[in-house]
């Protein structure tokens, strides 16, 4: 009855619609499969796996010669945005505070430093824009000991792949790759904008790693751990990317 062209039009249209529907079904099933997978630190494992691949690529391209933007230093004492009280809520006796160094060869490297000892180490001052993972940026200057200088003071010839930081109460903890720790703007800081750290900014000593999102710049450092294995990280356990590098 129908002419051959009309038949061909009908056939191709039907075939294409069926192929499209099949594609849509595969796509939607794939999406559902993805979010029904076992969770790896708060994320379906395939997503966590891709973040790991992104990290491999990012660390292969990473260079410590690239500095963060260095805006002019704000006036001494300029206020700096306060964000996050994690690990700062337990009372701490600042006269008794010391920085403890642990592992991986426990005992052998166990050391303690008072704030005075840290202040006597080579001092570095720099200015940066610290980026919050939420999307905002804060500009400030900060002073302290460069982490690479601190390692020299510590007398560690080896370079374990991972470094962990923990608040004295253990409520907040982060871990980082050694490459980022050796960045020239990575400091154990005791001053921000030319003034000693406020309690809310992590007195008496905090980490500042501007090559990472601010979640890694742990306040009120209690213990530093070195390890060849990746150490626990508060936000990575809650679904965030462990690397968080910029």
């Amino acid at each position: 009855m129908k002419d051959p062209i009309a038949r061909e039009v009908h056939k191709r249209t039907r075939r294409s619609i069926l192929a499209g529907l099949a594609g849509a079904v595969i796509g939607i099933s794939g999406w559902k499969w993805l979010f029904s997978q076992e969770r790896d630190e708060g994320l379906p494992w395939p997503l966590r796996r891709v973040l790991g691949l992104n990290e491999t690529l990012a660390s292969a391209c990473y260079s410590n010669s690239r500095l963060t933007p260095q805006p002019p230093a704000p006036a001494p004492g300029s206020p700096i945005r306060i964000n996050g009280p994690l690990g700062l809520e337990s009372p701490v006796d600042f006269t008794q505070w010391s920085l403890r160094i642990a592992g991986p060869f426990e005992g052998e490297y166990e050391k303690e430093f008072s704030l005075d000892e840290i202040r006597k180490m080579p001092r570095t001052e720099t200015t940066t824009e610290l980026k919050c993972i939420e999307g905002w940026t804060e500009r400030f200057s900060y002073s302290g000991v460069k982490f690479s200088d601190f390692l020299v003071q510590l007398g560690r010839p080896d370079r374990p792949a991972y470094v962990g930081f923990e608040t004295p109460d253990g409520e907040y903890y982060v871990s980082l790759d050694m490459d980022s720790m050796l960045h020239p703007q990575t400091l154990l800081a005791y001053e921000m904008n030319g003034k000693p750290l406020l309690i809310a900014h992590g007195a008496p000593l905090r980490l500042l790693v501007p090559v990472k999102y601010g979640i890694k710049s742990l306040k009120r450092v209690g213990t530093i751990t070195f390890s060849d294995e990746r150490l626990p990280d508060y936000w990575a356990e809650r679904g965030y990317d462990w690397y968080a590098g910029l």
């Binding site: 708060g42 994320l43 997503l47 966590r48 891709v50 973040l51 992104n54 993972i133 936000w235 809650r238 679904g239 965030y240 990317d241």
Partner: peptide, 8 residues
């Protein structure tokens, strides 16, 4: 966290 993981 979820948004970033999906986006990246």
């Amino acid at each position: 966290a979820e948004g970033m993981a999906i986006h990246f």
